[in-house]
């Protein structure tokens, strides 16, 4: 059997796909911002001297790194509302699952970045009278961020791909809309190929930029 590729039905349904693309972008932006900024807080907790901060941060990181993100999303969608009485819609369930997962992963990236800075830098900050926060902000983080930038970009790429999991709880994003188009027009080949191409076209330049960034940073070190 020879399949004749026909993308016309995809273009006819561009509005359906467009709604999905917007959903993907919103999901990505919310989860990447929450995940990467929250991860810094958790990462600091992991690094803290105070065990009342260190233990909860460690538990959080281990729990969210060692369970699949799909289980987390489904748990927040079906189990969390029963436990707390808080109503959870598909958007919130996906945001909770993906951003908490990203917080746990990026916390480890921040921690590794901060630990890679020689202790002498901390001591120097202290010696000239800086507080912990000042040393962290002005001395440690500028150097650490540079070192962990490639790892953070990779996390961002993962977050973008993870947004498709929101379709499992029926959040309207690109894959969800492609499935709708495929079911209505009987064109799964074109629909799912189109989604794969969209992700490839968006992420390929980002991946290439990350490689270039890694090379530049290696040279400057």
């Amino acid at each position: 059997m020879q399949h004749t590729w026909d993308f016309a039905t995809i273009f006819q349904n561009w509005e359906v796909l467009w709604v999905g693309l917007k959903g993907t972008v919103v999901m990505f932006l919310v989860t990447v911002v929450l995940g990467l900024s929250g991860g810094l807080v958790v990462g600091m907790g992991r690094y803290a001297q105070n065990s009342a901060l260190r233990w909860p941060a460690t538990a959080f990181v281990e729990i969210f790194r060692n369970t699949p993100v799909l289980v987390q999303i489904i748990w927040f969608y079906y189990a969390f509302p029963i436990l707390t009485g808080i109503e959870v819609n598909p958007f919130l369930a996906a945001v909770l699952g993906i951003s908490l997962n990203t917080m746990a992963f990026s916390a480890e990236i921040y921690r590794a970045g901060i630990q890679s800075i020689e202790p002498g830098q901390w001591e120097a900050g202290k010696a000239i009278g800086m507080t912990y926060g000042q040393t962290l902000r002005r001395i440690i983080m500028p150097v650490a961020i540079k070192r962990i930038l490639p790892a953070l970009t990779n996390r961002g790429i993962e977050v973008f791909k993870m947004s498709t999991l929101a379709s499992v709880v029926a959040y309207v994003e690109t894959l969800n809309q492609a499935k709708l188009i495929a079911d209505l027009n009987f064109n799964p080949i074109e629909s799912y190929t189109a989604v794969a191409l969209i992700f490839f076209v968006v992420l390929y330049p980002v991946v290439q930029a990350t490689y270039a960034l890694e090379r530049t940073l290696r040279k400057s070190d």
Partner: peptide
Amino acid sequence: TTPPLVQLF
């Protein structure tokens, strides 16, 4: 660069 769920579908 493509999501595994898209590949699976």
